[in-house]
């Protein structure tokens, strides 16, 4: 109950005084909107599920979803990405000078293309 009212409060209360017929009409319609005895929803009455009961509660749809996710992860791990960087091929350039000297330039390690004992000095600019 509120505090003692003054004249101003009484004027507000009088201004808010509703039509009795409208009130009765509203009450009847509201009470008839949901039949009495309607059971509470399962959402409210359902007991709390443990961690291991959740998958079973979700059912087949969850199992299918988990299966699809697992399959996708496996597929991505198995096939390398299409845009993975590819090592550039080694290039070998042979240049023969007027005096018959052959220059061989390559990006590959020397033991992959230099014949043993060829006597060529890498980077030295002189060969036989």
């Amino acid at each position: 109950m509120g505090p003692a009212r003054d004249d101003l409060d009484e004027r507000v209360i009088q201004a808010a005084a509703p039509d009795g017929e409208a009130v009765e009409r509203m009450v009847r319609a509201a009470l008839a909107s949901v039949p009495a005895g309607t059971v509470a929803s399962a959402v409210v009455e359902a007991p709390a599920l443990s961690m291991w009961q959740w998958p079973a509660a979700f059912g087949v749809a969850t199992a299918c979803l988990i299966g699809l996710v697992t399959l996708g992860v496996w597929w991505c791990a198995r096939v390398p990405p299409a845009l993975a960087p590819v090592a550039a091929p080694n290039q070998v350039i042979r240049i023969t000078a007027d005096d018959g000297t052959t220059w061989i330039l390559s990006t590959a390690p020397s033991d992959e293309w230099l014949p043993p004992g060829s006597g060529i000095v890498i980077g030295g600019g002189e060969g036989r």
Binding site: A22, V27, A29, A30, L31, S33, T38, A40, S41, V44
Partner: peptide, 20 residues
């Protein structure tokens, strides 16, 4: 006002009978 009040009371009744 009557329309809004009606909807409001209906919401109370629905809440009460379905969820307590």
């Amino acid at each position: 006002a009557e329309e809004i009040a009606q909807e409001t009371l209906t919401a109370l009744v629905q809440r009460w009978r379905r969820h307590g």
